[in-house]
Amino acid sequence: MHPTLHDTAYGVTAAGIADQMSFLTRWLPPAPARVLDAGCGRGDLALALDEAGYTVTAVDNDAEAVTAARARGVDAIRGDFAGYDGDPFDAVVFSLSLHHMSRLPKVVHRARALLKQGGLLLVDEFAWERADGATASWFHDMEAVLDSAFTPAPPERRPLAEDPYTHWIKRHRPLHPGEAMIDAIGAAFKVRKATRGPYLHRYLADRISDDDAGARVFTMLRRIERQRILGGGLAAVGLRVVAQATH
């Protein structure tokens, strides 16, 4: 299953949040614009947006995650996003959450209803279906290496998958693919930009400590992934969509 965001030593790294904020702040209206973080997890991104001066409301259906987010000062609400109601927002952000949500078209239309006219939908996701055998193998092998290096008590002789691609498909098949998310967004919004790019280094951050050593590993993984994508050795599974409520 895709990593759950959390605020322990492992999971969301400062470098990962900085990468997300670089994308979001290029598109968000100036602070203190009202932003809805849909599927906020334990509030890492919501905290960063708040610190940047935005007026943030966060929603998640996981009671434990919402409790943790509230303990950190996030204005978090527990509930199914498809049924959430509130005053119009300047922007709705889905950060690695849309692929989990059932009733995808209903969720996207709910986001549209929660936005002011001209408001923005910002989606930071990954298109797992774009991975090929080489990409799945690279991810699986890096995952095993990082587990050995960073996990406090790594499992003894963890078996390596004989067929990483089959393992990848089984692991991600329950999640919405990137194309399904783009289609749902396009049915309710005007898509202004959809880009593919590196993402696996962020996925692997679940296994990297949030310290100087972890930051160096994260940076190197990002560099390697970008170079391999440019060279055709890895698929670009990262997906970022900017859409606007214009009708």
Results as ranks from 00 to 15, higher is better:
V12N: 07
V12W: 03
T13D: 01
A15V: 11
I17L: 15
I17Y: 07
A18S: 14
A18R: 13
D19P: 00
Q20F: 09
Q20Y: 11
Q20S: 15
Q20H: 14
M21T: 06
M21N: 03
M21V: 05
S22F: 12
S22W: 11
F23L: 13
F23R: 13
R26L: 08
R26N: 13
W27Q: 11
L28D: 05
P29M: 11
A31W: 08
P32H: 03
P32N: 07
V35L: 01
V35K: 03
L36D: 00
L36R: 03
L36C: 09
A38D: 09
A38W: 04
A38Q: 08
R42Y: 08
D44L: 10
A46T: 06
A46S: 15
L47C: 04
L49W: 02
L49I: 09
D50R: 14
D50S: 15
A52K: 02
A52E: 07
Y54H: 10
Y54C: 06
V56C: 12
V56F: 09
T57V: 15
A58S: 09
V59K: 00
V59A: 04
V59H: 05
D60R: 02
D60E: 09
D60W: 03
N61G: 14
N61W: 01
N61D: 13
N61P: 01
A63M: 09
V66N: 05
V66K: 04
T67V: 13
A68N: 06
A68G: 14
A69G: 13
R70S: 10
R70T: 14
A71T: 08
R72P: 02
G73P: 10
D75Q: 15
D75S: 14
I77E: 03
I77W: 05
G79I: 01
D80F: 01
D80Q: 06
F81Y: 07
F81I: 05
A82V: 14
A82H: 01
A82S: 15
A82F: 08
G83S: 14
G83Y: 00
Y84L: 10
Y84T: 02
D85G: 00
D85S: 03
G86L: 10
G86S: 14
D87N: 13
D87E: 14
P88C: 09
A91T: 08
V92Y: 06
V93E: 06
F94L: 07
F94C: 02
F94E: 00
S95F: 09
S95R: 15
L96V: 13
S97R: 01
L98K: 04
L98T: 00
